[in-house]
Design a protein around this nucleic acid. Structure first.
Length: 964
RNA sequence: GGGCUCAUAGCUCAGUUGGUUAGAGCACGCGCUUGAUAAGCGCGGGGUCGAUGGUUCAAGUCCAUCUGGGCCCA
């Protein structure tokens, strides 16, 4: 009997699975997307509509490993933006890119070669790096696709592709054309045995015993008087250094402007040191008497005091520097701009020469300034020297000279961590070598690059807004751009040299060579003879014959590689893009990286920024808010694939969308938090289920609904359904605003609350009675189905950019009742737009007030449930007390017939009593009879062939055609 | 050390121009339902709004300092 009645209900039906099983289901949908070529289909559709393009220009990830969860965050955000913009009606050409050149790859390949004990030529080395990069491009492509990134993968750009390399070289040509390129020295780490520059990564820090020396730099009497210092006996500034061999290159002494310095009287002479270090200096010099302090003054007061070099006839002026500390030494820092990074910057600030009297072989050169007895001595400490604890010949000689000139106040052995060449195991030296620089301040026929860059920054929209401050700061403070590197795996600088190492650089020649490289790739530069490279190119006046030239071996700073992408991709309209880009979207570290390098190249070559808008995101941190590397041990590497293998791409995408990405983004530790229900990803997985179940409820209750046949026109729709559509219209409005502001976490919050509160707890819960028990084609039931149909379409589309897989799956079931449909996808749909009529403020106010009553009703029922008197709310009958004439009474009367349904109770009576506001009674005590079909209790049941049911069910049964 | 930035319940987020007992979802606890069922509903507990000081009739909201994170420099 009961079974017969149950068979007359329209219970939900769908093949859209409750369990997502994303790890299996998603790869199948990816294959489907490939099959229907979803990316191309979307682009084709928009192109046919002549849609305007929205170009998000992809910043190229480095190709040396698996996609990290942080990289997945970046690419997913881009994918969300693209999918959203596409649905908004834009054509969204998205050309993904790869950053291929650079030291990390060269190093890994080198390490491999060392392990195999092999040596190779530069060209062979480059081929190995190429293969290495290519391997990771393949891996990363697969990993990006797995997380759902939709892109023009067939049109990807690689910085190592010949045509792209030619564009990098053309960027350099533009620098030369603007007359910004010059040659100057800059200190680099230098391996003496290999006579080569080293990168930070090629250096190993090891303990080293150095000769520490305290050296007096005499202050001439005239200078002393000028600075109002006592001049009746010898006065000197005392410096401290652990690299005596750099003393011949000393050009200045740095002091801190705010530290207090003293003039101390040692009896026969006076010295100047930082006050806090005086005692330490005296101890080192074994001076036991405590000296009189003749004067105290701030470092700033000593600026430009011209002390003299202890054994070379030149001045060593006092300069100011903030990096000077009083932790060790004398507070007066020996400054050799050719032999130290900070010294170099200070040298630039004070226009000192970048002086380096040490040759490629590490020996002093005869430049007319170096004393004859030093020329030819080496700064190298060999492995044998190190074993014998012997310092370099240059250090020994300098020590002797200082001693002879009476300038050596003290000396000691000093053990500290010092950089060593990873291959020769010997200490490196810091040494200025010739480099190519790009001037950022030179203005000839047009404003300087820096001026244009700063102007362009103001024309760009920075999201969040503080990005503008960051890049402005970076652009303002950046010194001239050193663009040359002494590397193999990079794009060569097209410069030629004669036998005297004089460089020849010409923009027209560079462009002509770029054209050849576009065809042959940059290995051509390494393989071909200069005469062949220059064949067919007219050499500028003043150049030697091509046969007398050699090709330079410097490569360009890799930031020029990626910084040329706007030219290589956007200006060539690769994949249908345009210049400038509508959006760049990268981590906030790129203010100093790609955003800046792209800005410089663009401003120099094209006089404007390459982007209209720049969006930045924060970094992934551990659960404790600390960076992942410091956040404990990760058993599984935090790669995109590892997270997806556990949760599926849509959960990861939902997690990304749920976070305010402008700040740090916390993530669960994959190993430790798996079983913690409060783990961040587990919470997101839970809300994924909410969305999925919402779709499932909607799809399953539309199983017999054909919108073209069954839809009810809005004016004829039921109150509650119209209320639901009102809420939906609000949701569209709010979500759209959130997407426009790139605040995806608001979309997440809005949809989450819509599904959980508006739908699940209220609308869907109330609707079950109608959908299941009312006559199949009844107006109320069709009205609700019409609303559900609309809401499903809206919700699925609003979430489509985020839940790319699940919404498409639901879409297939909605449109065709099967898992896949060819030629259609939710990602090809237009963004939802609520008809103006859906908004109904009066209705909204009424229902909002009634929902408050509803909350009071459920609260009033609860104690009875706890007392075991009542189970489901349909066992309750409610009396609402409200005096006639009051607004609430009016409201109750207006919606009187609808109240039992709204409260999901069997009966609602209105009464005049002042209190209580709500009375709960039990259907069993009121003599009501429970309908076995709809479970409501009514005054009287009616006989039918299937037994006694309530009048409404009897009517439904009449309409019901048993399916046999 | 410098530049930029963040800090609201266990988690993710709201908190409008400073103004009633600081909100939501999830998680947690208890209960109901078994016609969304590896689902659904209800009720409940939980926050001295990082700390301290200040401005104000009134501060999560303004100011200062500090503490602890993050990115980039040094």
């Amino acid at each position: 009997m009961a079974t017969d009645l149950k068979n007359t209900l329209q219970l939900p039906k769908t093949d859209f699975a409750m369990r997502a099983n994303l790890v299996q289901r998603e790869p199948a949908r990816l294959a489907h997307w490939e099959k229907i070529d979803l990316y191309a289909a979307i682009q084709k559709k928009r192109a046919a509509q002549n849609a305007p393009a929205f170009v998000l220009h992809d910043g190229p990830p480095f190709t040396n490993g698996d996609v990290h969860i942080g990289t997945a965050l970046n690419k997913t955000l881009k994918d969300i933006v693209n999918r959203y913009k596409s649905m908004r009606g834009y054509r969204t050409p998205y050309v993904p890119g790869w950053d291929c050149h650079g030291l990390p790859i060269e190093q890994k390949v080198t390490a491999q070669l060392r392990a195999e004990n092999k040596t190779v030529t530069t060209a062979e080395m480059r081929a190995l790096c190429d293969a290495f990069s290519e391997k990771w491009i393949a891996h990363q492509t697969k990993q990006f696709k797995r997380i759902g990134v939709l892109a023009d993968w067939a049109c990807e750009y690689k910085t190592k592709a010949p045509a792209y390399e030619a564009d990098i070289i053309r960027t350099f040509a533009a620098f030369v054309e603007r007359d910004l390129v010059y040659r100057s020295k800059k200190p680099v780490y230098w391996s003496v045995p290999f006579e080569t520059a080293l990168a930070e990564a090629e250096i190993e820090y090891k303990d080293h015993v150095s000769p520490a020396i305290w050296v007096k730099f005499p202050v001439p009497t005239g200078e002393a008087r000028k600075y109002d210092l006592p001049a009746d006996k010898p006065l000197s500034v005392v410096i401290w250094t652990t690299t005596p061999w750099t003393i011949p290159a000393n050009l200045a002494i740095a002091v801190h402007p705010e530290v207090e310095y003293v003039v101390a009287d040692l009896g026969a002479e006076r010295i100047i040191v930082a006050h806090p270090l005086l005692a330490a200096v005296l101890a080192s010099a074994k001076i036991e008497t405590s000296p009189a302090i003749d004067k105290k003054l701030a470092g700033a007061a000593l600026e430009k005091l011209a002390s003299r070099h202890p054994f070379i006839d030149r001045a060593s002026p006092v300069v100011l520097a903030d990096y000077v500390t009083t932790d060790s030494g004398t507070g007066c820092v020996h400054t050799a701009p050719g032999h130290g990074a900070e010294d170099y910057l200070t040298g630039l600030k004070y226009s000192l020469p970048i002086y380096c009297p040490v040759g490629d072989d590490g020996k002093y050169i005869d430049d007319g300034q170096i004393p004859a007895d030093l020329v030819g001595l080496t700064t190298l400490e060999t492995v044998e020297d190190l074993t014998a604890k012997r310092t370099s010949p240059a250090n020994i000689a300098v020590l002797k000279k200082l001693d002879a000139s009476g300038a050596l106040l003290a000396k000691a052995r000093y053990t500290h961590s010092y950089p060593h060449c990873w291959r020769s195991k010997t200490p490196i030296i810091f040494r200025a070598v010739d480099q190519w620089f790009v001037s950022l301040d030179r203005n000839s026929d047009r404003p300087s690059p820096r001026k244009r860059a700063l102007e362009s920054i103001r024309e760009v929209a920075w999201v969040p807004a503080n990005g503008e401050k960051r890049i402005t700061g970076a652009v303002e403070s950046r010194p001239d751009w050193c663009v040359s590197r002494q590397r193999s795996w990079g794009v060569p600088i097209i410069a030629f040299y004669d036998d005297k190492k004089t460089p020849y650089l010409d923009a027209r020649v560079i462009r002509a060579v770029a054209d050849k490289i576009a065809k042959h790739g940059t290995n051509y530069w390494y393989d071909a003879a200069p005469a062949d490279i220059l064949d067919g190119i007219t050499l500028p006046a003043g150049w030697p014959a091509a046969s007398a030239l050699t090709c330079g071996r410097d490569t360009l700073d890799v930031w020029i590689d990626s910084g040329s992408s706007h030219a290589a991709v956007l200006r060539h309209a690769q994949g249908g893009t345009h210049w400038p880009a509508d959006l760049y979207l990268e981590g906030s570290d790129q203010h100093r990286g790609w955003f800046q390098s792209s800005l410089w190249t663009s401003v120099i070559a094209y006089d404007a920024a390459p982007y209209k808008r720049v969006l930045t995101h924060g970094f992934i941190v551990g659960k404790d808010g600390k960076k992942i590397s410091k956040s404990g041990q990760y058993e599984k590497p935090p790669t995109s694939d590892n997270y997806i293998a556990q949760y599926g791409a849509d959960v990861i995408r939902l997690w990304i969308a749920s976070q305010n990405f402008t700040e740090d983004i916390r993530v669960s530790d994959l190993d430790k938090d798996l079983k913690d229900p409060a783990g961040i990803l587990n919470v997101v997985a839970e809300s994924y289920r909410l969305f999925r179940n919402t779709f499932r409820y909607q799809l399953s209750n539309l199983f017999d609904f054909d919108p073209s046949r069954d839809a009810i026109a809005y004016p004829e729709m039921d109150t509650l359904d119209r209320w639901a559509l009102h809420q939906t219209a609000v949701l569209i409005r709010d979500c759209t605003a959130a997407y426009e502001a790139y605040e995806f976490h608001r979309v997440y919050q809005l949809c989450n609350q819509f599904c959980s509160v508006t739908l699940s707890a209220v609308y869907h819960d109330i609707l079950k009675d109608r959908l299941y028990t009312h006559a199949t084609g009844s107006r109320l039931r069709r009205s609700s189905q019409t609303a559900i149909h609309h809401i499903f379409h809206v919700l699925a589309k609003l979430l489509a950019p985020v839940l790319a897989f699940t919404t498409d799956e639901a879409w297939s079931f909605a449109v065709a009742k099967k898992e896949y449909i060819d030629g259609d996808s939710i990602h090809m749909q237009d963004w939802p737009d609520a008809p103006a009529g859906w908004t109904d403020a009066t209705l909204e106010a009424d229902i909002a007030a009634l929902l408050k009553t509803r909350a009071a009703v459920t609260e009033a029922i609860e104690p009875h449930r706890a007392a075991g008197k009542i189970g489901k709310s349909l066992e309750a009958a409610i009396t609402l007390n409200a005096a006639p004439g009051t607004p609430e009474r009016a409201l109750y009367e207006k919606h009187r017939d609808f109240l039992p349904e709204l409260f999901i109770v069997s009966q609602v009576d209105l009464a005049d009593a002042a209190s209580p506001a709500i009375e709960v009674r039990f259907t069993s005590e009121l003599g009501l009879r429970r309908c076995p079909r709809c479970w409501r209790s009514v005054p009287a049941l009616q006989a039918t062939p299937l037994g006694e049911v309530c009048p409404r069910c009897a009517e439904a049964l009449q309409a019901h055609q048993p399916a046999k």
